[in-house]
Design a protein around this nucleic acid. Structure first.
Length: 367
DNA sequence: AACGAAGACTTGTTTGGAAG
DNA sequence: CTTCCAAACAAGTCTTCGTT
């Protein structure tokens, strides 16, 4: 059960040869594995203490609308609204943790997404030039009727031109207008892709962290996105049931199983999912032995965190552990605020019901 | 082998209402 | 006015599966 055997070796770590392949799987499992390996080779060892910093370097991003590290829904983060102050506090705190300055934090974080976007951009430019001939043929029947060029957004360019006003010496040539429009549109469109990387990217990041802490890797088998029945001691789903994939699972040397659900953030509809998943897990358990069900998250909302802690299945807490990348983050963000569920959240942290990634990893290392 | 449609799945955003 | 809750929507990617 060494570290080496747990890294998926079937994955091809070479750079894809053709541009289309690169574009196709830019966020896919192979790209992520390659990038994560690259990151951890360059950025040194992982420990229980620095794991949360690695996770933030890899996955945390700047909310461009406010220029601050993202910790809550963007509409509630707008200047003047409560979460703007909290975002400022979080930004300050995470900046210190990462040894950056408030204005250079951006360069320290969001590594995974930046890398993926870079290869995507390179690939799509190649594809674009490859398709130029085809596109010309497709446009031929419409020639001479001044159809808009692809990638052209006149309104957008007008906004830019009008804003620049007198600073612009001369009118922009058509090809420059198109280039500007294309670049900006792509930039904005890219932001929408982040969520696609964040979901499985978070799972992979956690798996890598677990595998790169020797004391954890030596005593646990670490499984990522396996079907439930692939995990020791669980039966295949019955015909009428849906097959369930488990985000992350740890099987301790003594056979004890820890099923992990990794959610960067939590929403009410996903809470239902927790309960449904667990009901199936419990139903299909075949060893007649207890297993742990752990939530790992970066949610910042006090009410949602408290609810995750208090969620019950039958007669016991739903989650054996509720793990936050670093609960100090939400605590700092809320400051002295005592409204709503904030005091309750502090209680859960105080009572070790809501624990840090560091504490969880330390615990696993002792197993 | 390549292609394409359909479906699964992720997280973030928007909207609206109720409660405190 | 803020907080909390719920639901629908958005915007992608990846996988699967049938067809060509």
């Amino acid at each position: 059960m060494t570290d080496e055997t747990q890294i998926p070796l079937e994955v091809n770590f070479d750079l894809p040869q053709r541009a289309e392949e690169a574009a196709k799987g830019a966020f896919g499992v192979e790209s992520r594995a390659r990038l994560l390996n690259q990151y951890f080779e360059q950025n040194g060892p992982v420990s229980a203490e620095n794991a949360w910093l690695h996770a933030y370097r890899l996955l945390l991003w700047i909310d461009r609308r406010i220029g601050l590290a993202h910790c809550y829904e963007s509409d509630k983060c707008q200047p003047g609204r409560p979460w703007y102050l909290r975002s400022l506090r979080f930004h300050d705190w995470v900046t210190q943790g990462l040894g950056a300055t408030p204005d250079t934090l951006q360069q320290q974080i969001d590594w995974l997404f930046n890398q993926a976007i870079q290869s995507l951009t390179a690939a799509s430019e190649t594809i674009l030039s490859q398709n130029l001939g085809k596109a010309a043929a497709q446009r031929r029947p419409f020639e001479g009727r001044s159809f808009p060029e692809p990638g052209e957004d006149p309104e957008l360019v007008d906004i830019i031109v009008n804003t620049l006003g007198d600073f612009l010496r001369e009118p922009l040539p058509a090809d420059v207008r198109r280039k500007v429009s294309e670049r900006v549109t792509t930039h904005l469109a890219n932001e929408n892709k982040r969520k696609n990387l964040l979901g499985e990217g978070f799972e992979d990041t956690l798996a890598q962290i677990l595998r790169r802490i020797p004391a954890v890797a030596q005593t646990h088998e670490i499984l990522v996105r396996k079907w439930l029945h692939e995990i020791p001691g669980f039966r295949p789903a019955r015909k009428t049931m849906k097959d369930r994939q488990v985000d992350l699972a740890l099987v301790r040397a003594d056979g004890h199983r820890i099923l992990v659900t990794a959610k960067w953030s939590v929403r009410s509809d996903r809470e239902e999912q927790f309960r449904a998943d667990f009901a199936d897990y419990a139903d299909l358990e075949s060893y007649g032995q207890d297993f742990d069900y752990v939530l790992v998250t970066n949610e910042f909302d006090a009410a949602r965190l408290v609810r995750a802690c208090d969620n019950r299945a039958q007669n016991a807490p739903l989650f054996s552990r509720v793990v936050h990348l670093n609960p100090a983050g939400p605590v700092v963000a809320y400051g002295t605020d005592a409204r709503g569920q904030v005091p309750e959240m502090r209680n859960r942290i105080e009572s070790k019901r809501l624990i840090s990634l560091e504490a969880w990893l330390t615990d696993l290392m002792r197993a």
